[in-house]
């Protein structure tokens, strides 16, 4: 990642609302090619809404979303996903009534054949290989999150949006998952990762931003941001 590279993903003064309630009040953020940016902050700060706006699930009421310099505000989520903007949503977003294999089949929309997706997935997540015929709803939370990641990665992302990967998972599982995210980051994929629990993410992020009350309050190096985190979470 280079400091001078033009951002692959950029938000300019983005405002968004649910009905009449505005939750984003002018968000500015940029992610360069190959950069990992951690978006941190307490619950209700607007982090997930920011992700929804970027991936096209929520249309902003004002401002712009730019991808590779092009204004894609209002583009449909499936268009963006096809181009390579992949979201792994909060709450996993897997199909609990389908098996692991059937869930992976959902990723074949990208044109990649199922056997290739399966081979790639089971190499990265051997545990999913053991459970390929199992209904996803009967698997543990960590395994479901692995599947969500595997399905996202099967689409060969250029930009990866990760929303609260650690939600409801044991610390060991979180560590394992973030180990994989670290590998993906090293392969040069641009990643915007949203987290409430910041320490693990700061370990591999290039930059971090603190989001509070629907605005990005501070952007800086992980070491600088880490020092301010307790004040943010405790309101000090």
């Amino acid at each position: 990642m280079s400091d001078t590279a033009a951002p692959l993903l950029e938000l300019e003064g983005v405002r968004a609302a649910y009905g009449t309630i505005e939750v984003l009040h002018g968000v500015d953020l940029a992610v360069a090619p190959g950069e990992v940016v951690a978006l941190l902050g307490p619950n209700g700060g607007g982090k997930t809404t920011t992700i929804k706006v970027i991936c096209g699930l929520l249309r902003p009421t004002a401002g712009k979303v730019l991808l590779a310099g092009r204004d894609v505000t209002g583009a449909r989520a499936e268009q963006l996903a096809r181009a390579g903007l992949i979201t792994i949503p909060e709450g996993k977003g897997v199909f609990p009534n389908l098996t692991v294999r059937e869930n992976l089949q959902m990723a074949t929309y990208s044109g990649r054949p199922l056997h290739e997706i399966e081979a790639m997935t089971y190499e990265r997540f051997p545990r999913l290989g053991e459970r390929r015929r199992q209904l996803v709803g009967t698997m543990s939370g960590g395994e479901q999150q692995m599947l969500a990641m595997a399905r996202g990665l099967a689409s060969d992302p250029a930009v990866l949006l990760l929303d609260e990967l650690s939600m409801g998972l044991a610390p060991l599982v979180v560590e394992e998952l973030y180990g994989i995210v670290g590998q993906i980051a090293r392969s040069g994929v641009s990643i915007l990762v949203v987290e409430q629990f910041a320490r693990t993410v700061l370990g591999f992020a290039d930059r971090a931003a603190i989001m509070l009350g629907g605005r990005v309050r501070r952007v800086g190096a992980p070491s600088e941001i880490e020092a301010e985190l307790s004040a943010v979470y405790l309101g000090g």
């Binding site: 090619p33 894609v72 583009a75 268009q79 181009a83 250029a158 040069g188």
Partner: peptide
């Protein structure tokens, strides 16, 4: 990172060629 430079380029091309409905913000 070498592999990904190609991916980034492909992504940029896909985004540029994307047909978007005018409208922007909601």
């Amino acid at each position: 990172m070498e592999d990904n430079a190609e991916r980034v380029e492909a992504f940029q091309q896909e985004i540029q060629s994307m047909k978007l409905k005018a409208g922007g913000a909601e």
